[in-house]
Simulated scan of single mutants.
Amino acid sequence: MGLSVDPSTDRSQLVDTAVARYADGLREAGNPLVLRPELWVSCEKQARQILGECVGTLLGMPVQVAAEAELVSMALGVQRSDDHVPPIDSVHAARLLFDVAVGTMTETAARLPADLVLSRFLTAVRMLHEAIFTRVSAAAIGYESATLRDVGQASTARRHRIARDLHDHVGSSISLALRCLDLYALEQANGVTAPRDRLADARQALRDVFGFTRSMVSGLRVNELHDGLKEEIDAYSAAASDRPAEVRCRIDGDESWLPEEARQELFLVIREALRNAFTHARADHIDILVSVFPDAVHATVADDGAGLPSHLDGGGTGLTAMRQRVAALGGTLELISEPGQGTRIGLRVPLGGDGAERGGR
């Protein structure tokens, strides 16, 4: 069954309806972005742009994220800092807009011809991710720039930490979500019955993005790991791998000796190593060993993939972030890789005197 009206007219009607739902949701939550008329003007404009982009994509119209989106959003972040709008309100608004947009697209997709539904919906979800993330990231930069201007100082270490966090938390989670969507489309096209619910994995990865962003902008650090290291590593491996790659993970020692911050940072480093092995190295076998002692933790991630060209041994964004995370804990990281010979990453992080007091070696 095809669409009953012209796509451009239908898009306008769908956007109007979605914006009304969005405003109602913000009012119900008591969000100042709709309760203060001067704030709602810019908020509504951004919502209309984002909804127009993703709905237009779903309807098969040629669409791209507005060229001025980053500059406008950065300026908007500065303005919201000047207006003393808590960043958490902007994050809540982005989360609500995401939910409204997905609901609108789901309803609309049901009216598309069956042979177009999957490809159009996946493309529209990609557009939604890009549209929201582009603007939220730019607004966060603008907000922080205004804050640093007001306090009269800029911390290089803080900026590095934010860059690492955006890459390892936000970037990796969005990459995982898109990877799961790609795998879902591939499995559907090939008629494969997958052992995992790829859409559920994608939704969880996106929830992680919003959860981390909320904790970052509110100044609260939420524990990222709900299970043990092995369980978290195994779950990521199962969700991110598109091939029958064998991942063997072993944790030796007492994980309770690890301070929570060290445990979280260790997981992020291992996750980045796994992402590289899956995405770039195309490894068939990956071995992970974590040895926890009272006074230190050692870890290795070794794969039999394509290896790294010599000019990349210094590290791209991901490898740099891994080195910085380990260095921030007072540890060291070593990378050994040659083209065609696989990659081995080894790290050692001291745990200080607390662990030694709990037990000896």
Results as ranks from 00 to 15, higher is better:
Val292Glu: 01
Ile251Ala: 01
Arg27Lys: 10
Val136Cys: 00
Glu187Thr: 10
Pro113Thr: 07
Arg48Asp: 06
Gly307Gln: 01
Pro244Met: 04
Tyr22Thr: 01
Val349Pro: 06
Glu44Gly: 10
Arg158Trp: 08
Ala281Trp: 00
Thr17Gln: 15
Thr104His: 04
Gly314Asn: 08
Val136Ala: 04
Glu187Asn: 15
Arg207Asp: 13
Leu347Ile: 14
Ala238Trp: 02
Gly305Asn: 00
Arg282Leu: 12
Leu351Trp: 06
Asp354Cys: 08
Val65Arg: 04
Val209Met: 02
Pro62Ala: 09
Tyr184Met: 12
Met61Pro: 05
Leu33Glu: 08
Val222Glu: 11
Thr104Lys: 03
Glu68Trp: 08
Arg207His: 09
Ser155Lys: 00
Glu224Tyr: 05
Met322Gln: 13
Gly353Asp: 14
Asp89Val: 05
Thr279Pro: 00
Arg161Ser: 06
Val102Met: 12
Gln46Met: 15
Phe293Ser: 13
Leu312Met: 13
Ala109Leu: 08
Met105Phe: 05
Glu231Trp: 02
Ala281Val: 00
Val117Tyr: 02
Arg198Gly: 07
Leu122Pro: 00
Ala109Pro: 02
Val85Tyr: 00
Ala23His: 13
Leu199Arg: 14
Gly340Ile: 12
Tyr184Thr: 08
Glu44Arg: 15
Ala239Lys: 02
Thr213Ala: 12
Ala101Pro: 06
Gly307Phe: 04
Leu289Phe: 00
Asp99Arg: 14
Tyr143Met: 01
Arg36Ala: 14
Lys45Thr: 09
Pro244Ala: 08
Gly353His: 07
Ser215Asp: 10
Arg325Asp: 04
Ala277Gln: 01
Asp6Cys: 14
Ala194Phe: 09
Val217Asn: 02
Ala200Pro: 04
Pro195Phe: 05
Val209Thr: 06
Gly346Trp: 09
Leu178Gly: 12
Gln204Cys: 07
Glu260His: 04
Glu28Ala: 15
Gln49Met: 13
Val85Asp: 01
Val117Gly: 03
Gly346Phe: 12
Ala277Glu: 01
Val326Gly: 03
Asp242Ala: 15
Val192Met: 11
Val247Thr: 08
Ser175Gly: 11
Thr57Lys: 11
Ala306Asp: 10
Glu261Gly: 01
Gly211Ser: 11
Gly56Trp: 02
Ala205Tyr: 03
Glu44Trp: 03
Gln204Met: 12
Pro87His: 05
Phe210Glu: 10
Ala163Glu: 08
Leu333Trp: 04
Arg198His: 15
Ala277Cys: 05
Ser90Phe: 11
Phe267Arg: 02
Val102Ser: 05
His280Glu: 11
Val217Phe: 07
Leu39His: 11
Ile270His: 02
Ala131Asp: 04
His311Ser: 13
Gly191Ser: 09
Thr147Ser: 10
Asp287Gln: 13
Gly353Arg: 12
Met61Glu: 15
Tyr143Ile: 02
Met1Leu: 14
Cys43His: 04
Leu35Cys: 06
Gln188Leu: 10
Val349Trp: 04
Arg164Lys: 08
Met216Cys: 01
Val19His: 10
Ala157Asp: 07
Ala29Gln: 14
Ser73Met: 07
Asp254Phe: 02
Cys43Tyr: 01
Asp354Ala: 14
